[in-house]
Design a protein around this nucleic acid. Structure first.
Length: 563
RNA sequence: GACCUGGUAGCUCAGUUGGUAGAGCACCUCCCUUUUAAGGAGGUGGUCCUGGGUUCGAGCCCCAGCCAGGUCACCA
């Protein structure tokens, strides 16, 4: 690989360090006893401290220098003084090791004492320092001016996502998003555990991809010689555990869907699913609003969250609107008792594209998605979905056309989906069969499999149960004001980077001619190469750049020479 | 999948009908003992995303492609 000048300089410094007997990658632990944060919080003049971190900036003035050390908690100023570090005659450790051989990005450990500078900055006076790890690549170096304005910010999304490690080092606000993400998981876990529900794990590799309508990733198990699917949901497994006697189970589930990617969809994402026995979806709505209020407080310290132009309040309770009412509110059309044909006509009249594969459920979903969904900015429960689009949901207690289901909308997006779970095994089989029919009709969202084992489990009896799924990535997007899912995933999926070719075929060919005949008159070499003008130009420039050939002008003309 | 925008130094970005590739920061050399984005002086650094084409000559124009971001479509 071609190294930049900056990289070559750092490798040269590495060699010089080794020549001085300094191991740039020492094995032994470094006995740090505090952090940048603790120093600032429990500051005591003259206190002895041992800290470690990355060198992030330096201001050298002769035999004195201020630098910034960054650790997991933030940055602290450190002061290097030649005579403090090198009390004797030998000033090498300051003049050479510190000033010349250290670079921004290097990890160092420091033993020193606290003091405050004339301008009032809490600082560590370095008594001893030790190189802990040399950085061979230069980091991007954003910096903030007196007005708080950032210069040279590391902003290119492609580079930031591909090199998230560099992004995290230099962009504190990016790191903060992931700290909040972690707090969100901790808060949710705490909320559930406190209520006696169990965190469990269910298979990611599944013989039948069930529990949702989505295209799965397919993989192959060699020893069993069977196709397996990466899960699209964990619902059917968690319900088996309710059958088995657990009364509250939940899972933070990495889930995989082989569909399009955009700023709200990554091929792998995290769902939280929870099932609680003897409850219904009404109960679940109360639980969810308490949960989200709690999480918002734990993550942001407030129930209010800003998302783009909106201010969202996660404070319970949330408004509840039936799907039928929502459609009346925004279209004036009442879906109650309408036939498939009537719905299709109504949708057409609203300017929605429809086709014949769409059943009643899908048509209603289209109308709702098109006309209603974007209007719900504050957390709102949309309840009582039509039966056709909810094959795992109990029939509504008051209306057999509907189901006991809700989705929670925030800023026009779904972040949670919950039901009173269908536990009638005969009804469940009929619903699966209806899905199969829809799939045959061409609805590629409908399930193509009947999970016989799941039906067998239901036949043993499942208590009335309410279940909930929350898109964790979506939720943290709202809590951190990020409109892109990639900003809340450490490593969003990207197309692979392409490898660079060391020498092109043309360069190899020209180099071969040159090797057997050097020096050679430029035009003669060009003719022999048989390359077009442009191609020739590229090729010879490539060779000279890589110091494989040299072009020289003499009185006799232009000559190319092998180096 | 369609369209729009972008890809130039380690980072952020300029780059005039098409005429020797630039700036700031970083880096290197020298001077400077408590500084606050930026002390002074000098210097190094480039696959202008890739491949074709037009042209005497392409970072710039044309064609194809790659990657990314955005909008829409699809999808929850």
């Amino acid at each position: 690989m071609q190294l930049s000048e900056l990289e070559l300089v750092r490798r040269e410094k590495l060699t010089q360090l080794l020549n001085l007997g300094i191991n740039p990658y020492p094995a032994e632990l470094f006995p740090l006893d505090t952090t940048s944060k603790d120093i600032k919080q429990d500051y005591k003049e003259g206190k002895k401290v041992i800290i470690a971190g990355r060198l992030m900036s330096r201001r050298i003035q002769g035999s004195a220098s201020f630098a910034e050390l960054q650790d997991a908690d933030g940055r602290i100023q450190v002061y290097f003084n030649r005579d403090e570090i090198c009390p004797g005659e030998d000033k090498t450790h300051y003049n050479d090791v510190y000033k010349k051989l250290l670079d921004i990005g290097d990890f160092i450990g420091i033993k020193g004492e606290l003091f405050t500078t004339k301008v009032g900055e809490k600082t560590v006076m370095v008594k001893e320092f030790k190189l802990l790890s040399k950085a061979l690549k230069p980091l991007p170096q954003p910096r903030v001016d007196a007005d708080g304005k950032v210069h040279d910010a590391f902003t290119d999304p492609e580079q930031r996502y591909r090199q998230r490690y560099a992004d995290l080092v230099v962009n504190a606000h990016v790191k903060e998003v992931f700290v909040k993400r972690s707090k969100m998981f901790t808060a949710m876990r705490h909320f559930f555990n406190e209520r006696g529900w169990f965190e469990v794990e269910t298979p990611i590799l599944q013989p039948i991809p069930g529990g949702a309508a989505a295209r799965p990733f397919i993989t192959h198990h060699n020893a069993m010689n069977v196709e397996l699917y990466m899960r699209i949901a964990c619902e059917l497994y968690l319900k088996r555990l309710i059958v088995g006697g657990f009364e509250g189970v939940y899972e933070f589930a990495k889930t995989f869907r082989n569909e399009g990617m955009d700023r709200t969809h990554n091929p792998e994402f995290t769902m939280m699913e929870i099932y609680v026995a003897y409850k219904d979806y009404q109960w679940m709505m109360e639980m969810v609003e308490q949960l989200l209020e709690y999480i918002a407080l734990q993550v942001n310290g407030s129930t209010l969250a800003t998302f783009g132009e909106h201010e969202i309040d996660f404070k319970a309770p949330y408004k509840r609107v039936t799907m039928t009412q929502a459609i009346i509110d925004y279209t004036g059309f009442d879906i109650t008792g309408k036939t498939e044909e009537e719905l299709r006509e109504a949708a057409k009249d609203m300017g929605i594209t429809v086709d014949n594969t769409m059943g009643k459920g899908k048509l209603i979903d289209e109308i709702f998605g098109e006309k209603c969904e974007p209007n719900y900015v504050q957390p709102t429960y949309i309840t009582d979905y039509p039966k056709e689009m909810s094959p795992l949901t109990k029939k509504h207690r008051d209306n057999p056309e509907l189901t006991e289901r809700f989705e929670l909308m925030v800023c026009g997006k779904e972040i949670a989906n919950a039901y009173s779970e269908l536990n009638d095994p005969i009804d469940q089989r009929e619903r699966f069969e209806a899905q199969l029919e829809l799939a045959k009709k061409g609805d590629d969202e409908a399930g193509e499999f009947i999970d016989e084992d799941f039906l067998r489990a239901l036949e043993y009896g499942m208590p009335p149960t309410s279940g909930l799924g929350i898109g964790m990535d979506r939720l943290i997007m709202f809590l951190t004001n990020n409109p892109s899912i990639q900003e809340v995933l450490f490593f969003p999926q990207m197309k692979p980077e392409q490898k660079q070719i060391a020498m092109t075929d043309e360069e190899k060919a020209v180099f071969a001619i040159l090797k057997s005949n050097s020096p050679i008159e430029l035009n003669s070499l060009k003719e022999q190469s048989g390359l077009s003008n442009k191609k020739w130009d590229k090729t010879i420039k490539g060779l000279t750049k890589n110091k494989l050939a040299k072009v020289e002008k003499t009185d006799d003309g232009l000559f190319v020479e092998e180096v």
